[in-house]
């Protein structure tokens, strides 16, 4: 266990204490408040907490973190509005025609979809953001793995 954690930490490119702190706080919060919620709901919340902690630890200097924070905030606002508003009949969604998938899809487009806030980004910028995003994501994955290991081992 010790050697494993050590090696993982060495692999970790930029371990951020902020990120771990955010994430664990969020975990605690989830565990305290929503112990009664379903498994899938908890899973989603944990996932969201993971991304949010990533974004907050990275700060607003990165485009992908800004995009993540923005989407999360928007989601929260939507939830609050839904909570406060009278139950309105849901707007019927007109089925859109399926998007024409380009046969030989540009890899950059795929990357744009993967990296938050990557749509409409300049290619050079996209690569930069991707690098940062990968770094943070790897750290986050590492952190979560540590948590899971510690939990399962205990």
């Amino acid at each position: 266990m010790e050697s494993k954690s050590l090696s993982r930490d060495c692999n970790n490119p930029n371990p951020d204490p902020k990120m771990a702190f955010h994430f664990l706080r969020a975990l605690l919060h989830i565990q305290q408040s929503a112990a009664t919620t379903s498994f899938t709901g908890r899973r989603r919340r944990i996932k969201r907490a993971a991304y949010a902690s990533m974004a907050y630890s990275s700060g607003a200097r990165r485009a992908w973190s800004r995009a993540l924070i923005h989407t999360l905030r928007r989601r929260r606002q939507r939830q609050q509005r839904a909570r406060t508003a009278v139950a309105l009949p849901r707007r019927i969604r007109v089925a859109r025609p399926p998007r024409r998938e380009v046969a030989a899809a540009d890899q950059a487009q795929v990357l744009r979809k993967l990296v938050p806030g990557g749509t409409g980004m300049e290619y050079c910028m996209l690569l930069e953001e991707t690098a940062d995003y990968i770094r943070c994501l790897a750290t986050q994955v590492q952190l979560m793995r540590n948590v899971v290991d510690s939990v399962t081992n205990s």
Binding site: L24, L27, R42, M144, V147, V151
Partner: peptide, 24 residues
């Protein structure tokens, strides 16, 4: 991992603080 954590979550309530310090 989030799924795993969600599955593990009920057991997590006792030692989150310890986890926090440890993972940090």
């Amino acid at each position: 991992l989030s799924m795993k954590l969600a599955a593990v979550n009920p057991r997590l309530d006792f030692n989150v603080e310890a986890l926090l310090s440890k993972d940090l």
